[in-house]
């Protein structure tokens, strides 16, 4: 949410991550693949936040890990500041990693319980053999995330969930990275604490000029931190748009369903809210539906084309990118969802 420049930090094209499924006891043959990420294109501009939302199993975490090359991509290019990460190995990759860091979901399992806060926070600098003064650096980092200096000699178990997440964030920004990928940064925290961490993330972005990719399943959280949002379904991006626009005018049926499913803490809005109920559940990414991935659950589904042809992510007049054959027709109201009654009967 800060000074936007048009400088592109990260450019991803045609990214695929497939996990092989093997069978046979003596001779292991590959019999299929779980297509966790199946053709994703993204660009992230410097100083902005890209939010990636989707339900569990849609491949959002795999995508996040592949961007840092914690998982090797099967296909496609990830270009960070001009160099293709997927083709870089060894020392060069290590040096590049200094500029891209990750914040994990569960701070307790991502912080070593036997290291003191000081050791935890200085380890990144040691790993990259940087010259620094541990005392001042640690004090500086603790100030940055709003923890007292006395925290330096304590251990992770002595902190509450929110404070631990602050430590995780301090460690991620210790190397002054350009890009920070946060995978579900607040979902393990109590409701009253989530807002503190969200505000901290926004504040750090302003002060340090960070570029974020925030991965989360909570649409309200993502909306509060993101400039641009990509919605994922079964390994592909189905819609990408500036945050406010996506929430005001969702175009893809899946985005519409996702937004209407979130309960609001307001009885009046709640009484009027008509959730667009989807039939069935997420299909297996090992055997995704043909054509449009979403057509098996889509209430706007039209005969044959949706099942036969895979829609590409196309930019529409509003600047919104949507992967749906009928996006314009749905927006103008010429195609209406099947009756709710109908949806219920097919579900049964």
């Amino acid at each position: 949410m800060t000074s936007e420049t048009d400088e592109v930090v990260l450019e991803v094209s045609g990214l695929k991550v497939h996990f092989p499924i093997k069978a046979g006891s003596l001779i292991r043959r590959q019999v299929g693949a779980v297509k966790a990420v199946d053709g994703v294109d993204l660009t992230v501009k410097s100083g902005t936040t890209l939010g990636i939302v989707g339900e569990s199993g849609c491949g959002k975490s795999t995508l996040g890990k592949a961007l840092l090359k914690l998982i090797k991509p099967t296909e496609g290019t990830i270009s960070f500041d001009g160099s293709d990460i997927s083709q870089i190995y060894g020392e060069r990759l290590r040096r590049l990693r200094r500029r891209m860091q990750m914040i994990f979901q569960d701070p307790l399992s991502s912080l070593n319980p036997r290291q003191s806060v000081e050791t935890l926070l200085t380890e990144p600098m040691k790993a990259h053999r940087l010259d620094f003064d541990p005392k001042t650096k640690v004090a500086e980092l603790l100030d940055l995330v709003g923890l007292p200096h006395s925290a330096a000699n304590r251990y992770p178990h002595e902190f509450s969930g929110g404070q631990r997440q602050r430590l995780g964030i301090a460690r991620a920004v210790a190397l002054e990275p350009e890009l920070v990928i946060a995978d579900e940064p607040v979902s393990a925290l109590d409701v009253s604490i989530q807002a503190q961490v969200i505000n901290l993330l926004r504040e750090l972005q302003e002060r340090l000029g960070l570029t974020y990719i925030v991965i989360a399943h909570d649409l309200a959280v993502v909306r509060h931190v993101s400039d641009e949002i990509a919605v994922m379904y079964l390994g592909v991006i189905v819609e990408q748009a500036p945050a406010e626009q996506l929430y005001e005018h969702p175009m893809h049926p899946y985005t519409k369903a996702l937004l209407s499913a979130v309960p609001l803490p307001d009885p009046k809005a709640e009484d009027e809210r008509k959730p667009m109920l989807l039939s069935g559940e997420l299909p297996s990414p090992a055997d995704p539906p043909t054509g449009c991935r979403f057509h098996t659950r889509c209430p706007f589904r039209q005969p044959t084309r949706c099942a036969d042809e895979r829609p590409a992510l196309v930019e529409h007049s509003s600047g919104q990118k949507v992967a749906c054959h009928w996006a314009d027709e749905i927006a103008s109201g010429t195609i209406t969802p099947r009756e709710e009654q109908d949806a219920v009967t097919t579900a049964r």
Binding site: A195, I198, A220, R223, H224, Y247, L264
Partner: peptide, 14 residues
Amino acid sequence: VPRLDSPQDEPLRP
């Protein structure tokens, strides 16, 4: 709590 129906730029008040 972050809400879907509040202005986006409004900082949360934890």
